[in-house]
Write a protein that binds this DNA or RNA. Sequence first.
DNA 1: CGGCAAGTTGAACCGCCTCAATGACGGTGG
DNA 2: CCACCGTCATTGAGGCGGTTCAACTTGCCG
Lengths: 247, 247
Amino acid sequence: MGKEVNESALARKLRHFLDFSDDDVACIVALEEQELVVAPRTELISQDAEGQSYFVLLKGWAACSKLLPDGRQQIINFAVPGDFLGLRCFLLPKADHAVVTITEASVSQFPQQQMVDLIRANPKFGAAVLWALSFEQAIVVDHLVNIGRRSALERTAHLLLELEARLSLVGLSADGSFEVPVTQEDLGDVLGLTTVHVNRVLRQLRTRDLIGIRQRRVEILDRDGLEELAQFAAGYLEGEGASRLGQ
Amino acid sequence: MGKEVNESALARKLRHFLDFSDDDVACIVALEEQELVVAPRTELISQDAEGQSYFVLLKGWAACSKLLPDGRQQIINFAVPGDFLGLRCFLLPKADHAVVTITEASVSQFPQQQMVDLIRANPKFGAAVLWALSFEQAIVVDHLVNIGRRSALERTAHLLLELEARLSLVGLSADGSFEVPVTQEDLGDVLGLTTVHVNRVLRQLRTRDLIGIRQRRVEILDRDGLEELAQFAAGYLEGEGASRLGQ
DNA sequence: CGGCAAGTTGAACCGCCTCAATGACGGTGG
DNA sequence: CCACCGTCATTGAGGCGGTTCAACTTGCCG
């Protein structure tokens, strides 16, 4: 195949879990045709919006978040290259969350109908979309456990390991070193912590020589130590799930 | 139609959101054929199990939970009559969470293939399944926001309102009065709180005359007050989402 | 060099947890 | 019928993790 180098992040991710032919990859290429560069902090999908858009995130990071009436906000999940945006609300009458870019980002917008058509034409692509949905949901559930039952330190360690794993899938992490281009406030919003406390927790992880941070690049120095601290066990990373669906 | 009285909870729920013919309902009846009564605290689906089962919950309550290696546990979601069990892991290689009955319960088990066949034969039923999946996910996301950004009091109020809304859909709540057959420990596990604190919070809600509790029956006394406290806004309850899928 | 966003640090406070004891209830066996 | 459990609910006292408020520093960009 020999196009791994410049292959889209989404295709790269799916290949880890599904047996994908060139035909199947063509579906993805079709979705990614409309490349569009957007500024940081651009709202791609608005909470409570009715006619929604769908995107593939090609470059940069975004946040799926929910805003409370009084201004508090919880980030549900960071989106990284290769993730769909808005797909979670495919069937809901309106988006239950917002999607905002964090960095400058490159996205491809596509109409709902296009995805429906592609799925109809190629069932294996349908399975891939369903798989992506399940994968994302598994991550959200992990966040729920994280916030509900782990201390700030464990929680933060867990998030870093999760991000490293996800970025690895799309070739954005090498040797445990990867960019995390978000502010500490963003980290607080995803971890259910204050900015101030995120700062202290990160320092503690550094002091323990578990990670290194320089300019928003994180380096995992002691993976075993970190995984033990976080009780990290991401079952969703194990492969070949959707192949069961057949045809 | 005239069979509303004894109609299955699942069919009843779906009718709120989708236009359902008798043919469509037949799919549901087919899934619910194998009624089976199980004792309280029966593990229906085990965490990390590979060959999973799928169920419809007909009567009683269950909990979807994730256990950490050190014994801490987080309940992702309560399942009530009309909910699918195990569907979330349809495409994952193994279940990422366990499902355990809370009360004595009546369930119907069905093989994965049966659902695949039904979806193939009746696309509208497929849309219904997808909708149910999205609905459940919206609830999980709500829990995430709840635990991440709301105080114990707000969180508990929010959960009670959510449960009332869900039970209403299947006719298990009348005038804001409904059974919540779970222990305070269960409530703690879903809310990310200790049993002790759940107790104090419930007492406070009672003291404020927002709710009444007698023998695991909850009564909403001041819905406006409760909704304001919880900043309750459940967009997923608004209807007619999946009809968009067409055919 | 000036200005703003983000990171860092300290001190005081409070929400929730921990530990521990007691009370209420239903079931069971003598 | 009552003594004896086990489970769940309730309450108190004390401690800790994370918040809050407020300053100060660092880095970046014009």
